[in-house]
Simulated assay, not measured.
Amino acid sequence: MQARELMESDVKTVAPDDDVADAFKKFARYPFSGFPVVDEEDRVVGVVTESDLVDLFEPDDETLWIPIGLPPFVDTLTYQVKAPWADLDLGVDMVRNADRLISDVMSTDVATVTPDTDVDEVLDLLSGDDPNINRVPVVDDDGRLVGIIARQDVIRAFRDKRLA
């Protein structure tokens, strides 16, 4: 079995110059947790995931270290500080980051395969040590996007093969 037999060819994408607000709309509209980022010639230049966008809105570290004893301080107490205005951070962060470019938040180290890639290599990518690989773009020899394979595509293909 090869990648071409597993891939979905109708791929929803975003562009590097799209903004975060555009990506949020796509995540709301389609049941995907990530999109390939393609340039004007449909070459894969990155991937943006829900996690990439959620990371924009995580609060900064709110830990306070208090030195104990006399200088040089060799010990500290750690307290978690939660300011009452922290609940407003999400709205402020959303406004602050809405027009940020996808190219600023996307992952650029993208694992890709070609249509002729053997299913074993696809399985190695999707089940490997990198838990962030949930989908693999399928590209032609020029790096242009021709499809995508998600984990559920592989599972579905094996299920269908067993039922046949």
Rank of each mutant, 00 (worst) to 15 (best):
R96V: 07
L64P: 03
E5R: 14
F32K: 11
E40F: 00
M1S: 09
D130T: 08
R156F: 09
V11T: 04
E8A: 11
E58C: 03
G143H: 09
T13A: 06
V95R: 15
L6F: 01
D75P: 02
Y30T: 06
F73E: 07
D89Q: 14
V44F: 05
V122N: 03
P71L: 11
V47W: 05
E58R: 14
T108Q: 14
T63L: 01
D124E: 12
D141I: 04
F27G: 09
V110E: 11
D42H: 12
D75M: 10
D17M: 04
V119R: 13
T76F: 10
V44Y: 06
D39V: 00
T108N: 14
F158A: 04
E50T: 09
D93R: 11
N132I: 00
T76Y: 12
E41F: 10
P16C: 06
V113N: 06
T76V: 07
E40C: 00
L88K: 15
P71V: 08
D55Y: 09
T63P: 02
D42G: 09
V139L: 06
V119H: 11
L88E: 15
D42R: 12
L70H: 12
Q152F: 06
V44Q: 07
V11L: 05
E50S: 09
F24R: 15
M7E: 03
N132R: 15
P31K: 09
G46S: 04
A83I: 00
A83D: 08
I102K: 11
F24L: 13
V20A: 13
V105W: 12
L145N: 05
D93P: 00
S127C: 05
E8P: 00
A21P: 00
R159V: 10
V113A: 15
P67T: 04
G128F: 03
L101Y: 13
A111Q: 13
E8Q: 14
E121V: 08
A111P: 04
I66W: 00
G143S: 03
D60L: 11
L163C: 01
T112R: 05
G143I: 01
P72D: 04
